[in-house]
Design a binder for these strands. Structure first.
Lengths: 260, 260
DNA sequence: TAAGATTGTGTTGGAATTACAACACTTTGC
DNA sequence: GCAAAGTGTTGTAATTCCAACACAATCTTA
């Protein structure tokens, strides 16, 4: 009784549909009619009502979950931007990983693609504070996944704060894949200052630090300075960077990998 | 080059379809045809090939993600068992929560239902080590979510181990909702011994300990003994328990809540 | 209490959408 | 130049959608 429930006009059947949809992503009209033992028409009326409330998307043959819930939509939308470039970068990163390695995955959409590109047979260890990456790790039955806890930030969909930092400090990995928002003046920049401590802790816990950044990040500043080039071993991107950056990378002895 | 990719005979387009499907759950044939700028027939040939490999499910109108990947299916299947009972228990638990409370959610399908039943307007704090619960928390834009890190166990889909325990010890909440596998002889039992330390730490960090258990758990043993009745304040279930349990609960001063 | 209104549901037929087999065309590699 | 693989097109079959109407259960109101 303590909490007011805002979803007043939903029948039990509609709530069940929403619930299942959250788990399955798609439900066919015929299946639903069978499950509830009602006619197709009744199911259609339910789904149409839910669709009118923006809770589901009606498609030919059934209903599909709508991804526009909470901050969740932002991340999904960002993941789709330059998806090709991110995928190419991610594939090149996976090529840097051997089968028993322990790797660290930072938050962000590009690093998330690395998790997606990891083969399901991967037998190493994944250390991450990214909620979407963990979701992906549930599919990797041979891998070991270690989550760095902390407070959930909705915009980055990752855990952060002192808990995350201290959890990272207790671990050691071979390679850390770090995402950045901008590259300029021999340094890497990030959007959220609160993530700085976490990223630095991740970098300190790995033998080898790999920064991933699509070409859109080149010659761009962002709010906070993360680290200078010297702190990084490899930069993986999807197009040859501007000359000034390439020269600075070479001067700082950062290996450059341009994904095909 | 380091990792062998087992999915050999997949075209780039098919891989992209799989990839998107992992995020969206459903894709319509027409949409896919538009996205790749190919004919419906070509898309259908792709989806049929993927379906033959068991990677997707073809439905009238498009393709749907198949949930039989990884251990993931187990949890989803268990969540569906006695779903009604779990939902009733979960609703009763939500009624114990006030809007600014900090609550602890243990791993398990019943506690997961609590996360599902929490209104999206909930403005308190959720502390959990359950991956599905965290997934749900991404929708709760007003709440604060704290993840207890640790090693991911695929069968319980939760984080566990020393990291989890020490993370829990540093926190304090009003109510902890704990799942159990059996109730017998004035004690609560659980399936996995490794979870014992985590559950005890969660219980120690809350003012009030609530155990959730559907009636199927009554008079059942499980592998490990978690705690005696005295360590718990409230038991929420969905049907009146056997007399011997009810008497023992009363003797141990455990409040019994039977959800309607 | 009875009549009327409201809500939820099932049925029907035709309209709209999708599926699929068969064939023709283009590209690729040898 | 030929075989193989991939793709587009066409017409037809199968499925789904939906508006309209009929029926039952519940709730209102006189």
């Amino acid at each position: 009784m303590s909490i007011a429930r805002e979803e007043a006009p939903l029948t039990p059947r509609q709530r069940t549909i929403l619930d299942e949809l959250g788990r399955r992503g798609f439900l066919s009209t015929a299946d639903l009619a069978g499950t509830f033992d009602v006619s197709d028409m009744t199911v259609r009326r339910d789904t149409r009502a839910l669709s009118k409330l923006g809770l589901v998307k009606v498609v030919h043959g059934g209903v599909s979950a709508v991804e526009g819930h909470g901050q969740n939509a932002d991340f999904a939308a960002r993941a789709r931007e330059d998806a090709d470039a991110k995928q190419r970068v991610a594939k090149a990163c996976v090529d840097l990983v051997a089968d028993r390695d322990a790797i660290i995955l930072d938050a962000g959409t590009t690093t998330y693609q690395i998790a997606q590109e990891l083969p399901t047979s991967f037998m190493g260890t994944i250390i991450t504070h990214s909620a979407p990456a963990i979701q992906r790790c549930l599919q990797l039955t041979s891998a070991r996944t270690i989550c760095l806890g902390g407070e959930l930030l909705l915009d980055s969909q990752a855990f952060n704060g002192p808990m995350t930092v201290s959890a990272a400090q207790g671990l050691r990995a071979k390679t850390a894949f770090i995402g950045v928002s901008g590259i300029h003046d021999e340094a890497f920049y990030i959007e959220r200052d609160v993530e700085r401590a976490t990223k630095l802790a991740l970098m300190a816990s790995a033998e080898q630090v790999v920064v991933v950044a699509t070409h859109q990040k080149m010659l761009r500043y962002a709010l906070a300075k993360l680290a200078v080039f010297d702190a990084v071993d490899i930069l993986v991107t999807d197009a040859p960077p501007p000359q000034e950056i390439e020269a600075a990378l070479k001067a700082a002895d950062v290996k450059l990998i341009v994904a095909a």
